[in-house]
Design a binder for these strands. Structure first.
Lengths: 235, 235
DNA sequence: GGAAATATGTGACCTGCATCATAGAAACGG
DNA sequence: CCGTTTCTATGATGCAGGTCACATATTTCC
């Protein structure tokens, strides 16, 4: 695997961009800089694959990473698409084990890599960091429980609406009254997030476009009326 | 709400039964005992309801607690059924917010109650406790991701099989080659865990009984052949 | 102990969506 | 650049499983 190593002095700036490390003093940051590396991944490279030994944790400096699982028949579930500042995986601290999914880079990407055992030592030494990590993990748990609830309690149409609402939060930026999705997902990718078919996604999206809850630019970008979508859930 | 307070000297013994606090020295345990209360809840009492302000965390000393969500139409999703030693909720640390679900006691139950802000102070002071909590949260995340994957990638029959396998781990005790479920779930409850109908659960369970993956005693207890069930997943 | 509520079991029906099929557009790769 | 892959769009078809109906335990609780 061809990766480029960064000059150490660049890492400090990159680390301080990550929310988890923001607000840390230079003293607190120092030991993290010590053990952090920055790596460059070209489009479509794997960061790790499902079942690889889980021995490091990653932070995205720039670029996008797709996390997904595959089963024996080759069906895939897209767990999440992560962007700058985000950490993965979430479930590796103080547990020996393996990566629960594949991580693949969706565009040229810089990642900060930290050996997890070293990171654990630093966690123990910095309560401030623990607090932030507890927050991040708590949000992750709430997110997962919400998605599980959506899968259990809602039909496919509503699952797609809920997915779009969620993507507004996790992969959108507010512009005017609407959210622009920062990633262009294909219908198949959207389908693979919730376990439906690309055809059903196509039909549903077009329905929502007719109602103008979704607008699409020449370049293919989605602009979503999140509040409008919400109203579709209480018929 | 009618609750009984415990004599303080009993709390120490009860606390040390909780996995999160096991292995803590008497010194480390002392400040936790200071802020912990034990409360008694009679069958069917609510511990809290969805959207109540999240200001405390609970540990089960004995008994069973059902965590579930309801949507506007009254449909319910059972998130989990927790037993002795387990903590809930998982997502409340260092985040202001509300309980994400209802918690209802399924039998007479003793809970240890700790105000969350006090608990946070203790967490900061005891790295050992942080490590254990990170482990618990990590397991929770892995569990949720696995359940989400099951919902997305599998049909109803396989979802039921996967649910039973999961219940063996979370609510079962190994006896001989089989797992006895420590809670007797109704078909409707099983259905409400994965978003299917009680009829489908009934038909599927009977199918699995015919194949002797599930045995049922006079008293209604399930004895499950977990390895046997696994083989049903790779047809 | 008896009424009411709640459980299970099973057949019949019906519908939401996956699947299949086809066609055209767009993106990719050598 | 053109062939190949991958995309979207949309109609037709089929079936897994939700819903309904009804019979029969079993439990709950005055």
């Amino acid at each position: 695997m061809k990766v480029m190593l960064m000059r150490q002095e660049d890492i400090e700036k990159r680390l301080s961009d990550v929310p988890l490390f923001k607000e840390l003093s230079a003293d607190e940051l120092a030991p993290i800089i010590e053990i952090a590396q920055t790596r460059f991944y070209k489009h479509k490279m794997y960061v790790f694959m499902q079942d690889d030994p889980l021995d490091r944790v990653f932070f995205i400096h720039n670029g996008k990473v797709k996390i997904y699982k595959t089963d024996f028949s080759g069906k895939e579930q897209i767990v999440s698409v992560l962007g700058p500042g985000e950490m993965f995986p979430h479930a590796g601290f103080f547990r020996k084990g393996n990566f629960p999914a594949h991580a693949e880079v969706m565009e040229d990407t810089h990642l900060i890599v930290i050996p997890i055992n070293k990171f654990e030592e630093i966690l123990i030494a910095y309560p401030e960091l623990c607090i932030k990590l507890f927050k991040v993990l708590g949000e992750k748990i709430v997110d997962l429980q919400g998605r599980l609830e959506a899968q259990v309690l809602h039909n496919t149409f509503e699952q797609i609406v809920l997915l779009l609402i969620r993507l507004c939060k996790t992969n959108g930026e507010k512009i005017g009254g609407r959210f622009r999705l920062t990633t262009q997902f294909t219908n198949r990718e959207l389908a693979n997030m919730i376990g439906t078919s690309r055809e059903t996604v196509s039909r549903t999206i077009n329905q929502l476009k007719k109602k103008e809850y979704i607008l699409q630019t020449e370049e293919g970008d989605y602009f979503i009326d999140r509040e409008g979508l919400q109203t579709e859930l209480f018929i």
